[in-house]
């Protein structure tokens, strides 16, 4: 139970927010003014930390969150927030402690699963892939249905660990549970990666028949055709994909995923220099480093002289 003074302070704050303008700077100013009168009000401190995070002011957020947790060490949301702030500030060992603490504090079920996923993300970033997978599995034990992002994270870890069968099975299970098209498409890509062409083919043909924008599906079918020994068909699909992508890619500020797609199409067409250029640009525009990395590796492999 929080003290009445805290509730009163929050009501005051909410009244001010409703009545007036409330950009994050103004909210910070309002909260700061109220904290001058009630400096230990954890609700206000927690709210101000949120606003500081929105403004990218991690040091200030960290200070507020430490005060909050000093008073309410059991607060999971604030523990997670502090973990992320410390992570963003590069304070790695302490961030790890906070993540572990968030897992321990969480209620069993989805809340604890979310803590495990945070830990899995952390481990993956530290390069501890096995530990990342273990954390991910713990999350699914807590909440077997899971969330779309969790399945994608697990798929990525399993690919890195060279477990294509687990990856395929996990994505399939995810699609069956959530019906998310993102998981279905990830499963198609995993099937192509694993050489399960027959499984992927019907989905690809169906999508090509009904999609308005077809480039990603042309590229998938090209992979299918090239894998099945149909280079002419593959080339035809790849050229069609590049034409559509050229039309969709904004020259100054492109969607990085479209650049990765074009890089892949160009690499498969044998135009490795153009593919490298696209990848460099994609990296510059925030493309998924994992996708960029795996494609760059493939290009390097392609570029090696044939013995």
């Amino acid at each position: 139970m929080r003290p009445l003074a805290t509730i009163g302070g929050c009501l005051l704050l909410l009244a001010a927010e409703v009545a007036g303008h409330h950009g994050p700077e103004e909210v910070v100013a309002e909260l700061t003014a109220q904290l001058e009168m009630d400096p230990e009000n954890v609700e206000l401190l927690s709210r101000r930390a949120t606003e500081y995070r929105a403004l990218g002011m991690h040091a200030q957020a960290e200070a507020d969150l430490r005060l909050v947790l000093g008073k309410h060490p059991q607060s999971i949301a604030d523990t997670e927030s502090l973990a992320r702030v410390l992570w963003a500030r590069g304070k790695c060992p302490e961030a790890m402690d906070m993540i572990q603490r968030a897992v321990e504090l969480a209620q069993p079920g989805r809340e604890r699963a979310a803590g495990w996923i945070l830990k899995s993300e952390w481990e993956l970033e530290q390069g501890r892939t096995d530990a990342a997978l273990a954390a991910c599995r713990n999350a699914f034990q807590e909440d077997p249905e899971g969330m779309v992002d969790w399945y994608l994270l697990r798929s990525r870890i399993e690919e890195r660990l060279g477990r294509p069968a687990d990856r395929l099975a996990g994505l399939k299970a995810g699609h069956e549970a959530l019906k998310s098209i993102v998981l279905r498409n990830a499963w198609v890509d995993a099937a192509l990666d694993a050489g399960h062409l027959d499984e992927a083919a019907p989905v690809i043909e169906t999508e090509l028949a009904k999609s308005r924008l077809k480039s990603s599906w042309w590229i998938r079918r090209a992979r299918l055709r090239l894998g099945a020994g149909d280079p002419d068909g593959g080339t035809q699909d790849l050229k069609a994909a590049v034409v559509e992508l050229d039309r969709r890619i904004h020259l100054q500020r492109p969607d990085a995923k479209l650049l990765v797609d074009r890089a892949q199409a160009r690499a498969l067409l044998g135009d490795l220099d153009a593919a490298r250029d696209d990848l460099a640009l994609a990296r510059e525009h925030g493309a998924d480093p994992w996708e960029v990395g795996r494609l760059a590796n493939r290009i390097r492999e392609e570029a090696k002289p044939t013995p």
Binding site: V148, D149, L152, S180, I181, V182, N185, E207, K210, S211, R212, L213, K214, S216, W217, D255, A256, K257, H285, G286, A287, D288, W290, E291
Partner: peptide
């Protein structure tokens, strides 16, 4: 939610835009 181009929401958005007629 993750607003980055690599996030699940952005991936879904691309798939949705591909299909709408």
């Amino acid at each position: 939610l993750d607003r980055k181009p690599t996030g699940a929401m952005a991936k879904w958005l691309r798939a949705d835009l591909e299909q709408t007629q």
